[in-house]
Each structure stands twice: as C-alpha cells, then as structure tokens.
Computed example of a mutant assay.
Amino acid sequence: MKRDPNDVLRVYSGPLALVEAHRAALSEAGIECRVVGTELVGSVGSVLPEPIELWVHRVDMTRARDIIGGESDTQGSTTHDRPHHHFPHPVSDPKPAPAPYRREPYVNPDPKG
C-alpha cells in the first residue's frame, strides 16, 4: 500500500527550537515528518505565538506521539507548553487623590502703580 502524500496530521505546534528537536527525534526513529510555518517567523517575527508546526503521516501518528511524549492535537487547537500564570490586580494601595487646586500667581494689571 502506497502512502498518500496529502494524508498528514499535525502532531506538534510550538516554538521553533522544540519543533526542530522533535523533528530530529522523529527522523532518528525513521518517521518521515515535515516542519511547516518557518516562513512566518522571518516575516512576522514574534507576532504569532506558536506558528511552527510538525506534520507526520496519519499512519505514523501514534508512534510520533509516543516519541514526542507530550500532549498533541489533531483537531486544530493549539498546544501550550507553558503554564498559564494568573496575575491578580493590585488591591493594597488606594487610588491616588486628585492634584490640589492650582491658583495662578497674582499679576498686577497696572505695572506703574
């Protein structure tokens, strides 16, 4: 049975360094994979948080997930490698008071007298 070259799924999405590390591990195991989205890094920069994706053939998906060992997705939602931190609003200091009323300095309208 010949593989369909268009029957691929995303096994991982994340930063370029991690995608390249996973690609090397999959290639070492004999799994054909492709890195997608590197063109966006050069043009857009860090605007997109996780534009780099790692794609494998559908028949190799379970082996690839086992090798990568992380949570992966096939439904199109992004995976997040970093934990979400909650930063609460400050409550210890009250809101500052408005500035005091400013009076203009007195200017004598009659300079001679």
Rank of each mutant, 00 (worst) to 15 (best):
L48D: 06
S13L: 02
H80Y: 13
V56E: 02
T78V: 07
P15R: 09
V8A: 02
L16W: 03
L9V: 08
P94I: 03
G45Q: 07
L26M: 04
H84N: 10
C33V: 02
T62E: 15
E104M: 09
P94A: 07
L48Y: 11
H84V: 15
V44Q: 07
V107R: 15
P5I: 03
P15C: 04
F87M: 09
P105N: 05
T79V: 14
T79H: 04
E104S: 13
Q75R: 07
P98Q: 02
S77Q: 11
G37R: 00
G70M: 09
V56R: 01
H85P: 03
R23A: 15
E104W: 13
F87S: 11
I52Y: 00
G42H: 12
M1F: 12
M1P: 14
G14P: 03
R58M: 05
P111H: 08
K95I: 11
A25R: 12
T78Y: 03
P109V: 04
T78K: 04
P94N: 03
T74A: 10
P105E: 03
K112C: 10
A21M: 13
R3I: 06
H80V: 14
E32C: 05
T74I: 15
P98I: 01
E50D: 11
H22M: 05
A64N: 05
E50M: 08
A21E: 10
I67F: 10
A99M: 14
P15A: 11
I68F: 08
V56P: 00
K95G: 01
G30T: 06
S13N: 14
A21P: 02
V8L: 10
G30C: 10
S46F: 12
T38M: 11
R3M: 10
L48V: 15
D7C: 06
A29H: 03
L16V: 14
P90S: 15
K112W: 13
K2C: 04
P98S: 09
N108I: 07
P100M: 03
L16H: 06
S72C: 11
N6V: 05
R82T: 13
V19L: 04
P100Q: 06
Q75S: 15
D73C: 08
D81T: 04
R102M: 05
V35C: 01
R23F: 11
A24Q: 13
C33N: 15
G76C: 06
K2A: 15
V36S: 01
L9E: 09
G14T: 01
S13A: 13
R58H: 07
E32I: 08
G42Q: 10
R82G: 07
Y101N: 08
D60A: 06
V19H: 00
H22T: 00
E53L: 07
H57R: 10
S77L: 09
R3F: 03
K95Q: 12
P49Q: 07
G69Q: 09
K95L: 13
D60S: 08
